[in-house]
Design a protein around this nucleic acid. Structure first.
Lengths: 283, 283
DNA sequence: CGCTGTGATACTCGGGCGGTATCACAGCGA
DNA sequence: TCGCTGTGATACCGCCCGAGTATCACAGCG
């Protein structure tokens, strides 16, 4: 008997995240007592203490930490199974693939890819799913997407298969009227601490890094703030395609190069996916 | 409601593998009727047909194929969660890591690694788990192991993180009395079709490739058959350490190089694992 | 036309999951 | 010191769902 029901995992993960039985129960839509019992039962079945309950609060044991990590992965795998199965069934005769793309990025590459792939015989239907800045990995893991375009070093490719598509330098994007916009080239050091142009901050997994710059969560927001002269940012060169008149792009001499990959779950074996990857790697 | 219980996945996978409700039910230790109902219910909940039942047999639909694949991955993830949690709890104060190793391979590398790691301050206890020839990936996936040593191109690193440890050439291992054993070097073409020394065949995922050679499933068996002059095989150079007097190793001029990696599940974040990997990559 | 083997259906039963009410206990302020 | 509050655990109960048995419906086959 070395398995768990996903219900038990959902319950445990909720408690482990909230560190509070009452709130966890509310989040799960059940009452607190059954939740307490379910966790006790799980601990008995595993033969391991998962939670440290001293009055005034709950904390995770070492084993609990592991189960939180592994349980999340297992829950993602289960919901991925459901989503991908539904997709395969609904699709009708033609296959369908969901491609997760950082919203607003990859314009030209994406256009070329979609055009080239659509021309292939027996091509599947591609649904483009715009995602937040760093969420493509989660989308692949829980089945919202089948394949993604990702930028390293921003995204981690850990746990996926991938093929490299292109590499490009990075540019600083700043207000056209700002003095720095006149420069032919800049270094990271030069833009790190400009008092009137603090770097914009993106959320990573829903948490913003610390810093003085404004918090932005999509590209339009960012474009506007730059146009208003309030902030600046660093982007791959291909971002030039969406710049406004009020924007200027200045090459960075020492920023790390950004590589674009096409990425998919390693166990995936569909014909449609293989075709898309083949097309992409020929671009 | 986009999730499934692992029970449902177990049931479906059993049916999908057996393609027969009766046998699947027997394998699951339940009666056939509840199994039929469970599958129907699952199909209703997913809103998708998974099985094609025409009298005289069952076959998978496209969606069923996907669910088989994804379901297996999810089940592996769930049992991995249980195994690793139990391990973390049983361990007591000291961490424990299970290292999967191809039985009989990696002798020197493994010794060096274990010695070096044991010398580290705060080192975890390492349990070495001998595995079959190509099963390390499964062991990592379902939690029987936490980390593994693997040979490319024999194993696929798909879905894992890894660090390269060493690269070596390959040698043909044959009976010392055989004429070919006198040669200083051989090519793959020369050993492919030696009538009296057909290449031994290893099972890959429990299925043997076709061919004239004997089927072997462990190294001792193989060593014996070679010593008896019945077969030959191709191995990384480091295999020389376990050769018998009756064996001869002849370098291969054109065999692909073999690289040894240390490999672990991408989501794993334990301190003990990080230490082991650091030690390994410094060797 | 029975016989065999398949999966589906009908019905019953029991365990488990979830609900409500309550307890036990620690912290805390009047 | 004594409630009061907030925590998780316990007691008890009802009901649904999962599992079992018996049976059906149907296709292939001698």
């Amino acid at each position: 008997m070395d398995t768990v029901e996903t219900r038990e995992l959902r319950y445990f993960v909720a408690v482990a995240e909230e560190l509070h039985f009452g709130r966890a129960a509310e989040r799960l839509g059940i009452a607190q007592p059954p939740l307490s019992r379910a966790i006790q039962q799980l601990e008995r079945r595993l033969g391991v203490a998962l939670l440290e309950r001293d009055r005034r609060g709950v904390s995770l044991t070492g084993a609990g930490e592991i189960l939180l990590q592994e349980g999340r992965a297992a829950l993602d795998a289960a919901t991925a199974a459901v989503r991908r199965t539904r997709r395969a069934g609904d699709a009708g005769p033609r296959d369908r693939l969901v491609l997760a793309v950082k919203a607003g990025a990859f314009h030209e590459l994406l256009n070329k890819l979609l055009d080239a792939y659509a021309a292939e015989p027996g091509a599947a239907e591609i649904e483009v799913l715009p995602s937040g800045m760093c969420e493509q990995d989660g989308m692949l893991r829980d089945g919202r997407a089948d394949v993604a375009l990702m930028h390293t070093p921003f995204n981690s490719l850990a746990g996926f298969d991938s093929v490299e598509l292109m590499t490009e330098g990075q540019v600083a994007i700043l207000p056209a009227r700002h003095p720095l916009a006149e420069r032919k080239v800049l270094s990271l050091a030069e833009i790190a601490d400009v008092p009137d142009l603090p770097l914009a901050r993106w959320p990573r997994h829903d948490v913003y890094p610390p810093g003085p710059g404004p918090e932005v969560h999509d590209q339009t927001q960012l474009a506007q703030l730059i146009a208003l002269g309030r902030t600046m940012t660093v982007f791959p060169e291909s971002a030039r395609t969406w710049l406004w008149d009020e924007h200027a792009a200045v090459p960075l001499s020492d920023a790390p190069a950004v590589t674009t990959h096409i990425v998919w779950p390693a166990h995936s074996r569909s014909r449609a996916l293989a075709g898309l990857v083949r097309t992409a790697s020929r671009l």
